[in-house]
Write a protein that binds this DNA or RNA. Structure first.
Lengths: 118, 118
DNA sequence: TCCATGTATTCGGATAAGCGAATATATCCT
DNA sequence: AGGATATATTCGCTTATCCGAATACATGGA
């Protein structure tokens, strides 16, 4: 498993960072991705759903759009956004499970510390 | 598949962001993770491998350590760092494959644009 | 204990990224 | 064309984060 991975070059990592890591490095954008995964919708609806101002949502969507992480289709004057690549959600879900295990482990530590004090 | 995902709360996303996304939102830290995955090593060796100043590496390692993304063990005055959770590498590898498909698709587009011009 | 090696932290300055408010642009309908 | 709705962009400001240089801290051996 370990040796199946071809170590990426610095250049590739820079691309990876600019393309994906950067895009996911903002809570609001992650919220937007999950909201769109739950339900494709247009900008104003998204803004209302999340409680953010419309320009804020629009700016974040631009970042996601430039990286093809969301796709668009017009519906009259509105623009419906959807998740462009579901694997991005899979990535986020994997991160979530790592986070959950981490929190569980921390909670275990707290418990054993507590036990040790008794 | 789609309905198997429990939509995370804003609070959880904030945690996720602070814990993982934030940590991966920096090219040098990703380089460090891959270098440690390739070979656990101490700080100075890492700095030499990557060509970064030692304090820079140390600062980034602190960020990773605080999130348990790397683990440490002492070897005399040196501190050997290793990857703390290999799933983080899996996450990065998944991102890489998304990036590669994206680049391939872009390259296809360029090709068809080119063909259309002929 | 003192020195050598290795690691972590602090400081000031520079850069990048987000935000709110205002405004520009686009689409459709009459 | 002109107005209504919806979306995108720009501007100035604030905040967060990174970096290099200097320095403090930790460990083991003479």
């Amino acid at each position: 498993m370990s040796d199946a991975i071809i170590k990426p070059t610095a250049k590739e990592l820079s691309l990876l960072h600019n393309y994906l890591c950067q895009a996911l490095s903002e809570t609001k954008r992650i919220q937007i991705l999950y909201a769109l995964y739950d339900q494709p919708q247009h900008v104003t609806a998204l803004a209302k759903t999340l409680g953010f101002p419309q320009p804020t949502v629009s700016r974040h969507l631009r970042v996601l759009r430039q990286r093809s992480l969301v796709t668009t289709r017009r519906d009259g004057p509105a623009v419906i956004y959807s998740v462009g690549d579901e694997r991005v959600i899979a990535v986020l879900e994997m991160m979530r499970s790592i986070l959950h295990d981490h929190l569980a482990k921390q909670s275990d530590l707290l418990q054993s510390d507590f036990a040790a004090d008794m």
